[in-house]
């Protein structure tokens, strides 16, 4: 072991004297929790990027997605002396102190796929999959097109304080005021806490409390699968249209048997791909973390850093339906 690290050190020295640009930077991505299929695809983006460009990549995640469970992992990365920490934060504020400690050591801290809303000063930048201000309107349009722009709809969300979901729900409440949706009525917003059991109970309760319900938006991967399953087992797919944000791998069966006509998401893969490229460019001085500056990412084109040091990987949501779902492998 010692021998190996000595060789590595010697090699590192040789490299750094030979050509600084060829130095590989260390990137670690800390997911919300292990066993979460969403992060498999995101991690793949990092891995494949680091096969092409100068970075070493590792993925770690705590066993549970509880607010403080990521802290020991961040502390460990500081101790390891990595160059970049990319993280999908489990808490909007419990990580502030440890983020500050990491940045004091010169580590770039980027939040990926979710931000520490209200505490943005504690991270360097954020990479979000799409423009979150448009998600609400897109989802209302989606459910509208499924129910013929008429009837009662409801929202089945994650937890009551989930910041992203709440932001989108706010957008939905705004969007539905458009005269185009005058005959649609948002009757309830319920929370399944991202647990299959609880989401199922909430969905059953929605259908018992609102017998005329026409559509349900579940902007969370656990919620949309649970809602689809309730509709499937009750055999009412023609009466209640389920849509929202889901993973193709989890929704494929529901789309193929007609339970769900269409749903939306983005590409988690591209988030990892973009994050790795940006990390390498920032460390090499090829990109600047300043609002308004731009950089190039293969396959994604020119990316701009928006207000609040926020970056989007795609401009609009991708819609999945029976025609295209087999083209996606996540």
């Amino acid at each position: 072991m010692l021998k190996k690290s000595l060789i590595a050190m010697a090699a590192g020295l040789a490299l750094s004297t030979a050509a600084l640009a060829q130095d590989k930077i260390d990137i670690v991505f800390i997911g919300k929790n292990t066993g979460n299929p969403y992060f498999d695809s995101l991690t793949k983006g990092f891995v494949e990027a680091c096969q092409k460009i100068a970075c070493n990549f590792e993925f770690v995640a705590p066993a549970t997605a509880e607010a403080t469970s990521q802290i020991p992992f961040i502390e460990a990365q500081i101790q390891r002396g990595v160059d970049v920490i990319a993280i999908s934060p489990n808490s909007p504020d419990a990580l502030n102190q440890v983020f500050d400690a990491a940045r004091a050591k010169g580590i770039i801290v980027m939040t990926v796929n979710g931000d520490i809303t209200g505490n943005e000063a504690h991270r360097d930048l954020t990479i979000l999959p799409t423009d979150f201000t448009k998600v609400g309107a897109d989802q209302i349009e989606m459910v509208g097109s499924l129910i013929g722009y008429e009837g009662e709809i409801a929202i089945l969300s994650a937890t009551t304080e989930a910041p992203d979901q709440n932001f989108w729900i706010k957008g939905m409440n705004e969007a539905i005021k458009d005269p185009k949706y005058a005959k649609m009525k948002l009757v309830a917003t319920v929370y399944g806490d991202d647990q299959p059991e609880k989401s199922t109970s909430e969905m059953e309760a929605l259908m018992a409390n609102f017998p005329d319900l026409k559509g349900v938006i579940a902007p969370t991967t656990v919620g949309i699968a649970a809602a689809a399953q309730v509709v499937q087992s009750r055999g009412v797919a023609d009466k209640v249209k389920v849509t929202g944000l889901g993973l193709p791998s989890e929704m494929r069966d529901f789309v193929k048997d007609g339970t769900v006509a269409a749903f939306q998401l983005w590409s988690p893969y591209n988030e990892g791909w973009l994050a790795a490229h940006l990390a390498v460019d920032l460390k090499a001085g090829k990109a600047k973390n300043e609002v308004g500056s731009t950089f190039e990412v293969p396959n994604l084109g020119t990316i701009t850093i928006n207000a609040g040091n926020s970056i989007n990987t795609q401009s609009a949501l991708t819609t999945f339906n029976a025609e295209n779902i087999d083209q996606f492998d996540f």
Partner: peptide, 28 residues
């Protein structure tokens, strides 16, 4: 046992499409 579950599965979920339809049908 929870740790072993992660280790044998390599922390990956078994997705819906792999569970036999007849088995799922028992709940419906």
């Amino acid at each position: 046992y929870r740790g072993l579950t992660f280790i044998v599965s390599n922390a990956r979920q078994v997705d819906r499409q792999f569970i036999p339809a007849d088995l799922k049908g028992m709940s419906q």
